[in-house]
Write a protein that binds this DNA or RNA. Structure first.
Length: 438
RNA sequence: GGUGGGGUUCCCGAGCGGUCAAAGGGGCCAGACUGUAAAUCUGGUGGCUACGCCUUCGAAGGUUCGAAUCCUUCCCCCACCA
């Protein structure tokens, strides 16, 4: 398939087109910059990796010179989108919602701005204007129920609503059912589109493939009330090559907010992607030139990947979400946390690298006179008993500053500090503990 | 209420007088290999002042030089009968 617009061409290559409402979108995009939007659900105080694709799609549009608008669902968040949900959602209190709105607006703004500082070689002619972040509560709240039913509800056929996938699936699962509240959700999202169309000249809504029903409800409403046509475009639902949902780990979702998941954890999420996912993810989530991605892909194809491709991917995405400085730090921390000898560091460095690692402080005097390794391992809680600690050392699984402890009678003293006042103990491959003298 | 079977270490499960800190498997912990993956392989898996000692086999008593193993009582599970 060939496109007139560079924009759709690019999205196609990136694998980001799932469905679009009509092909005229291509012409519209070729003619010049258009305004488009994507909505984000305030179900938590931070977005997570599952939301990242929407951000990236907006960013791709922005880098092509179009004008994205981000919508946060201050109104819809009070209702709950039934799309793709098997059960009725818990309603959020106004207070929590407010906090969530601030959190995700913050995430959105940062990412969308950083998207412009990356890869100038693929950056088009763009506007540096601040991206509008709008809240649908601002225009939904003033409506009275009666007025909304008369003005907006009139344009919806229940038959059509019932036919939508999001509604149909829920009704078929009789156990769950669907509240009137959630059933009405699509009216609000449809009205959002109409509102943005009128007020911001917004002609395109993008979203995940599960949003198709809500998006087309919007384009229909615009056609009925104004006679104009607006567009919808969805991107595919992303799963890993092995079928895992994007962003999910054993511990749950990985969030964009550094207070929830540190930049290091975020970076690690991407480092741990399978080979088979790397090329796709590089295209979707980074702004690297395609020939550069081709090159990385060929490394994997030749079977020569030693994790470099993942590290490259991780650095790019971490930069987008947490900034370059944090991304670089995550790279350094990863080296330390995966075996590189720790020495000649400052307390500050160690503190930031091992921020999430448990630590114990100890009196300077005790360390000066030396502490047996077995005592140290039990006191720091790395092992629960001395017998257990003994086994660890015998197995060769005990490390100080990433150097293997040589024997059971090893004595630790101040000479082994890796920085002014800290040293790093390790049990096995991953379990770290920071010891600090006070 | 009656009869039969059973409660073993993190879990499952063998053991039925000394050779039992207790087979085997799972899990877990390490190590090797590797790319911070998976798989595989190796070792370990009650505690301690450690070639020895102490505490563990539902609970409490008892027999015995010696008990997870035998006896008594109690508690709890399961099956069948009423």
């Amino acid at each position: 398939m060939s496109f007139k617009s560079a924009m759709l061409e690019d999205l196609e290559v990136r694998g980001l087109i799932f469905q679009k409402t009509h092909d005229e979108l291509d012409e519209a995009l070729a003619e010049g910059p258009i305004t488009l939007y994507c909505g984000f659900d305030p179900s938590a105080d931070s977005l997570h990796i599952g939301n990242l694709l929407g951000i990236c799609v907006l960013a791709h549009f922005r880098r092509h010179g179009h004008n994205p608008v981000a919508l946060v669902g201050g109104a819809t968040g009070l209702i709950g989108d039934p799309s793709g949900k098997s059960e009725e959602r818990n309603q959020l209190s106004e207070e929590v919602l407010q906090k969530n709105l601030e959190g995700i607006s913050n995430d959105l703004r940062k990412c969308l701005d950083r998207a412009l500082e990356m890869h100038p070689e693929t950056l088009g002619d763009v506007s540096r204007d601040e991206i509008p972040i709008v809240n649908n509560a601002d225009w939904m709240k003033p409506w009275s129920f009666i007025e909304f039913l008369r003005d907006v509800g009139k344009s919806f056929r229940v038959n059509a609503m019932l036919a939508k996938d999001s509604v149909k699936t829920r009704l078929e699962e009789r156990e769950q059912g669907l509240s009137y509240t959630e059933f009405s959700y699509m009216l609000i999202q449809a009205y959002d589109f109409l509102h943005l169309f009128k007020e911001h000249g917004c002609r395109l809504q993008v979203g995940g493939s599960d949003q198709w029903g809500n998006i087309t409800a919007g384009t229909e409403l615009i056609r009925r009330t104004t006679g104009d046509s607006a567009f919808g475009l969805t991107f595919p639902l992303i799963t890993s090559a092995s079928g895992q949902k994007l962003g999910k780990t054993e511990k749950g979702a990985t969030y964009l907010n550094p207070d929830r998941n540190s930049p290091y954890e975020f970076y690690q999420y991407w480092v741990n992607r399978e080979d088979a996912d790397c090329e796709r993810f590089l295209r979707m989530f980074t702004f690297m030139p395609h020939d550069e991605i081709d090159e990385l892909a060929s490394i994997i194809e030749r079977g020569e990947n030693r994790g470099d491709v993942q590290r490259r991917l991780a650095h790019e995405v971490t930069w987008l979400v947490h900034g370059k400085e944090e991304a670089d730090k995550a790279v350094r921390a990863s080296k330390m946390l995966f075996g590189e000898k720790i020495e000649g560091m400052t307390d500050r460095d160690l503190q930031s690298i091992f921020a999430d690692v448990p630590s114990t402080s100890i009196e300077r005097g005790r360390l000066e006179s030396g502490i047996g390794i077995l005592d140290l391992i039990t006191e720091t809680g790395l092992r629960g008993s001395k017998s257990d600690a003994r086994r660890l050392v015998q197995d060769g699984g005990a490390y100080i500053n990433n150097e293997k402890v040589d024997g059971l009678d090893h004595v630790v003293d101040t000479a082994q500090l890796a920085s002014e006042s800290m040293l790093v103990l390790r049990a096995g491959k991953k379990k770290y503990h920071v010891l600090a003298v006070e």
